[in-house]
Amino acid sequence: MLKPEPALDRDPGLQPERTGLAWSRTAFVMLLLSALLLRGGFAHHEPMLAWAGVALLVTTGATYAWAGVRLRVITLSSAPVTVSATWAMRVTALTVALVGVGLAASVLYHGELLARLGALMH
């Protein structure tokens, strides 16, 4: 019978700071994308793009807030991964995926981008 390995002590190094910075960088990129979606939605009168931008902007705010919470939790906790961190990653990934699907649906529905790409190929 195999014995479970003893739990390793958590490295008190820079891991909490790197994790917090990773969440902050993710939120910053999401902020840039939401600004582009909002601008595109309003400039081209595309409500689907505007709503995708709003959804991503709300998620961006939650991600920025989560970055601070996650830094405090990982600093004080002995467990590097928590259930809430797993759910935060899932919700962030799901929102980004849904915004991507909305963007793809908008492009395919109107077809202007595909027509321009097709014209460039010929």
Rank of each mutant, 00 (worst) to 15 (best):
V73E: 14
M48C: 05
A43K: 13
A88L: 01
L56S: 00
A50I: 00
L98I: 01
V99H: 10
T82L: 06
A52L: 03
A67N: 09
V58F: 13
A97F: 08
T75H: 08
A88F: 01
V54L: 04
H44Y: 14
G68Y: 14
A43I: 04
T63K: 04
H45R: 12
A65K: 11
L98F: 02
M48K: 05
I74Q: 15
V83Q: 13
T75K: 13
L56D: 01
S78F: 06
P80F: 09
G68L: 09
G61K: 07
L71M: 05
A97R: 00
E46C: 04
V96T: 06
V99S: 08
P80H: 11
A85E: 05
Y64S: 01
L94G: 03
R90K: 04
S78H: 14
A88N: 00
T82M: 08
M48L: 07
A79V: 14
A67M: 12
A97I: 00
T59K: 09
M48I: 03
G40N: 15
W51N: 10
L76Y: 06
T63H: 09
A55I: 05
T86F: 10
G40D: 14
L49S: 12
P80L: 10
A93V: 00
T95F: 08
A62N: 13
R72H: 13
A43D: 15
S84M: 11
I74S: 03
A62V: 05
A55R: 05
H44S: 13
V81F: 12
A52D: 12
V58Y: 11
A85S: 02
T95G: 12
